[in-house]
Computed example of a mutant assay.
Amino acid sequence: MANNTGKKYGGRKAGTPNKLTKELRISLKNILHEEIEQLPNHFQTLTNKERLELLIKLLPFVLPKVTPVSHKENEPMTFDLFD
């Protein structure tokens, strides 16, 4: 018979962390930490083309993307650079 009361019975209480998720995050964090430490060694083994491709892929994680700014019709063009 289905529970139609809207009340929750059994399972984790609200706000209780999931142990498996926590353990998985810790394991992945350790693996990534080790790989990041080895990155300079791996980087030296790459060809120039591969290095450039890797740098291009990693660049968005270091520098923010530039968004284009456009001027709309009938919009005043004021520049408040030295206020």
Results as ranks from 00 to 15, higher is better:
M1H: 07
M1R: 11
N3Q: 00
N4W: 03
G6N: 08
G6P: 04
G6F: 01
K7M: 11
K7Q: 00
K8L: 12
G10I: 13
R12G: 01
R12A: 05
R12N: 12
K13N: 14
A14Y: 09
A14L: 10
G15E: 01
G15D: 05
G15S: 00
T16P: 01
T16E: 11
K19Q: 08
L20G: 13
T21R: 03
K22L: 02
K22W: 02
E23Q: 04
R25F: 10
I26L: 10
S27D: 08
S27I: 09
L28R: 03
L28K: 06
L28D: 10
K29V: 08
N30V: 02
N30W: 13
N30A: 12
N30H: 04
I31N: 01
I31A: 00
I31W: 05
L32H: 06
H33W: 03
E35H: 10
I36M: 04
Q38W: 00
L39A: 09
L39V: 15
N41E: 00
F43H: 06
F43E: 01
T45V: 07
T47M: 01
T47L: 02
N48H: 05
N48I: 04
E50Y: 10
E50I: 03
R51G: 03
R51M: 08
L52C: 09
L52G: 05
L52P: 06
E53T: 02
E53N: 08
E53Q: 04
L54Q: 02
K57H: 08
K57Q: 14
K57A: 03
L58H: 13
L59N: 13
L59R: 15
F61W: 08
F61I: 02
V62M: 06
L63N: 10
L63C: 09
P64T: 01
P64M: 13
K65W: 15
V66W: 06
V66G: 14
V69P: 14
V69F: 15
E73R: 15
E75P: 07
P76C: 12
P76Q: 08
M77T: 12
D80S: 06
L81N: 04
L81V: 08
F82E: 05
D83S: 11
D83G: 10
D83M: 07
